[in-house]
Structure formats: structure tokens, C-alpha cells
């Protein structure tokens, strides 16, 4: 009697995690959960954005509007520094274009993973293709484990970033009015701190090291270029150095092996939640 009951319980428990794991809801939550560390970094960054926007003379509605409709942390940050020195809107839009050009590379990377999605999905996911969500989602797409609904994982990451970014902008606006000295705390360090943590798992091969070092060196020497063009110059130089060294210097390191290593170093725990064994 007891044995029968036990076996019945364990079957239902071992079936449930499978359907649960494959469900859109589970993927949505998993995407949000894996984005959590980046949220921790985005909180101070969002708050400092709201604070600085108020100090720069941007209206409350314009600051919230920027976080709601543009949703691009570094470009928003640069735009308020331009606003504070009285730059015209057309130059700010041009600078935004240059600073965000890197996202075209993100879009190109996502093409094979979005190709079977509806247009609505593409529109929504493209809107949320920030540095953070791209980095989290691409690691999930790279993991070739046959789990469907990865777009929901992508969406979960994006929604969490989006809601958090807007709440933090709002908090920053309010806090900036009450305590303007927050602007001098250096909370902007949260962004490079987060990004350093995101780059390290990629450093698994010589071409990757070369890509990162070249991008770093060029970013300093090209920083004088107008409209933040140095960022794009550095990114493209890094990518070119990486692929060049992969093909010509370290031909034995195949790209597949590289991706495999990245996947492993970023493995996200999606362990089945085993039912607790009932003692016999």
C-alpha cells in the first residue's frame, strides 16, 4: 500500500519538472533570474542617471520618457552630459546613433535565433536588445539543449531590465531633487564593474584575449574622435583582431570549440527539481 503510494508520487513529481521547465512561464522566470546580477549593477546606474538628468536640466517628463522609449543606458548617460553643456537635439541624436551602432552587431548575432519568431516578437525583443539582455540571452541561445521557448527567456531578461531601469530612473529623479550630492558619489562605476564581470567568462582563448586587448587599447587612443565614434572604432578593431588571430595565428582553435568553452563557463543551472524521495 505504502509502496504503491510512493511510486505514484515519484512519477508525478518526475513528470512535472519536465513540463514546467519547458513552459513559457518557467523560461520567463529563468531569464529574469539569470539577469539578477546585472540588475544589481543596473540599480546604481539607473539611479545616478535620474539624479544627473535632473541636475543637467532635463525635465521630469523628458527623463522618464527617455528611459521608457529609448531604453539605452550608456546613450542616455552621454545624452544628459551633452544636454548639460547645451548641445542641440540633432547632435544628441547623431551621437546616440554612433554610440548604439554596436547594437547592430547584436542584432546580426541574434538573426538565426529570431528567424522563426513572429514580427511582434522580433519588434519586442529588438526593442530590449540592451548590452545586458543580449549577453544573458545569447548564452542561453548558444546552449543547444533542445529546450523550446527560449524567446520567453529572452523576454524575461528584457522585462526585468526594463522595469528595473524605469523604477531606478524614477528613484534617481526623486532622490536627485532631495539630495543633489548623490551625483558626486561615483555610482556610475556600477556599469564598468558589471561589464568586467560579463567579459571575464569570454577569456578562454588567445583570440578572445587579443580581441579584448585590442579593443581596450584602441578605445583609449580613439577616445578623441567626435561623437563617441571611438567606441565603435574600438569594438570593430577588437572583433577584427579576434577573427584575424583565430584564422591566421591560432588556426587550431576552432570557433566551435571556443563557443563550447564559453557555453560551459556560463552554464546556467536548469537542474530538474527532483521530488523528495519518500522513505520506504
Amino acid at each position: 500500500m505504502l509502496k504503491k503510494l510512493t511510486s505514484k508520487t515519484s512519477t508525478s513529481k518526475s513528470l512535472k519538472p519536465m513540463t514546467l521547465k519547458y513552459s513559457p512561464k518557467y523560461q520567463l522566470i529563468a531569464g529574469a533570474r539569470d539577469t539578477f546580477p546585472l540588475i544589481v549593477g543596473a540599480i546604481p546606474f539607473g539611479i545616478i542617471f535620474g539624479t544627473l538628468a535632473a541636475t543637467a536640466g532635463l525635465s521630469f517628463a523628458a527623463t522618464m520618457g527617455m528611459s521608457l522609449f529609448v531604453f539605452a543606458g550608456s546613450a542616455q548617460f552621454i545624452s544628459i552630459s551633452l544636454v548639460s553643456v547645451g548641445t542641440g537635439w540633432s547632435i544628441i541624436v547623431l551621437t546616440t546613433f554612433v554610440v548604439n551602432l554596436r547594437h547592430m552587431l547584436y542584432g546580426a548575432t541574434m538573426v538565426p535565433y529570431y528567424k522563426n519568431l513572429s514580427n511582434l516578437w522580433k519588434l519586442v525583443l529588438a526593442f530590449g536588445l540592451t548590452d545586458e539582455t543580449f549577453a544573458v540571452a545569447i548564452n542561453r541561445y548558444y546552449k543547444d539543449d533542445g529546450v523550446p521557448n527560449k524567446q520567453y527567456y529572452n523576454l524575461g531578461s528584457m522585462l526585468f531590465m526594463y522595469i528595473n531601469w524605469n523604477i531606478c530612473t524614477f528613484i534617481g529623479l526623486i532622490a536627485g531633487k532631495a539630495f543633489p550630492e548623490i551625483a558626486g558619489w561615483g555610482l556610475d562605476f556600477a556599469m564598468p564593474a558589471t561589464f568586467i564581470g560579463m567579459v571575464i567568462p569570454y577569456l578562454v582563448s588567445k583570440p578572445m584575449w587579443i580581441a579584448v586587448i585590442v579593443a581596450a587599447v584602441v578605445s583609449i587612443f580613439a577616445s578623441e574622435l567626435p561623437h563617441k565614434l571611438g567606441l565603435m572604432a574600438a569594438a570593430v578593431s577588437g572583433v577584427a583582431a579576434g577573427i584575424f588571430s583565430e584564422v591566421f595565428l591560432f588556426a587550431s582553435t576552432s570557433h566551435e570549440a571556443l563557443e563550447q568553452e564559453i557555453k560551459q563557463s556560463n552554464t546556467i543551472n536548469l537542474k530538474d527539481r527532483e521530488g523528495i524521495e519518500v522513505a520506504e
Binding site: 552587431l105 560579463m198 567579459v199 569570454y202 578572445m208 577573427i243 570557433h255
Partner: peptide, 12 residues
């Protein structure tokens, strides 16, 4: 494949 680390480094 080199895009994420190169872009992030160029920002950092």
C-alpha cells in the same frame, strides 16, 4: 562571436 567582449571592453 567576438562582439560581446570587444564591445564591453571598449566601454569599460
Amino acid at each position: 562571436g567576438y562582439v560581446p567582449p570587444a564591445v564591453l571592453s571598449a566601454i569599460i
